[in-house]
């Protein structure tokens, strides 16, 4: 018996990277803008998708993939709006990965925008590229106004940061401007939106961003 040393130089993340690349190639070939909707549990991700579908009906063709640990509720909510959708159960995993998305992506070659709602979690999904073009990170004031500064990595890598439920800020004693400032310091390039989906605050600004992203498709 003797001991040997093998120089492996192996990228442990290579499988996810390869599948994310394939997803991205498929999407870009078909002119689909995929948006990874990430954020805290209960922050309003599904409602954002539902309201966006309603607002752009007849104008933009939208599809959705809804990630969840076990349930299918988000999927059921979204299909009621008459769009193509797929539920993805992650089982014991706390995030979607490129492999799960890879299984259903081919059904969405004919949409303009594909929303991929990730599992509600500010840590686990961060390092799993799905092949998306943009990342939207949504938190709400009810998570506490230190939620941004406590999770720098997810905000650093976001394209759009949404602080939702701002109409409740006073009731929960959250300082919305502090949350915006924390986000801006971590990620000065991101679009930051103060929103309240129940009071229609910031929603137009979001639609503007989305339409702008659609216009710059293929550039």
């Amino acid at each position: 018996m003797h001991r040997i040393e093998i120089e492996a130089e192996h990228d442990v993340l290579s499988l996810n990277k390869r599948l994310a690349k394939e997803n991205r190639e498929f999407l870009s070939k078909h002119g689909v803008i995929a948006i990874n909707v990430m954020g805290a549990i209960g922050s309003g991700k599904t409602l954002l998708i539902e309201k966006t579908v309603e607002a752009l009906k007849g104008e933009v063709k939208i599809g959705a993939i809804l990630g969840d640990v076990i349930a299918k509720e988000d999927y059921e909510r979204v299909v009621k709006h008459g769009i193509k959708a797929e539920p993805l159960n992650t089982g014991k995993e706390c995030h979607l990965d490129a492999h799960l998305v890879h299984h259903v992506i081919e059904k969405f070659g004919d949409v303009d925008v594909l929303f991929i709602e990730n599992v509600g979690n500010l840590i686990c999904p961060v390092d799993f590229d799905l092949g998306e073009k943009y990342r939207v990170v949504m938190v709400s004031v009810t998570e506490g106004d230190d939620v941004v500064s406590k999770h720098p990595e997810i905000f650093r890598l976001a394209d759009v940061i949404i602080i939702n439920k701002v109409a409740l800020a006073e009731a929960v004693e959250a300082d919305v401007d502090k949350m915006v400032e924390d986000a801006r310091k971590l990620n000065p390039k991101a679009k930051i939106i103060k929103m309240d989906l129940k009071k229609e605050i910031g929603f137009e600004e979001w639609l503007e961003w989305l339409k702008c992203a659609l216009r710059s498709r293929g550039e």
């Binding site: 018996m1 003797h2 001991r3 040997i4 040393e5 093998i6 120089e7 492996a8 130089e9 192996h10 990228d11 442990v12 993340l13 390092d127 650093r156 000065p188 390039k189």
Partner: peptide, 20 residues
């Protein structure tokens, strides 16, 4: 603007094993 590079890798560098 501050640029951030690297810090995201996960590499298996080397494996030591016993062989016959």
């Amino acid at each position: 603007i501050v640029s951030i590079n690297g810090g995201k890798d996960f590499l298996l560098k080397k494996v030591e094993m016993e062989v016959e």
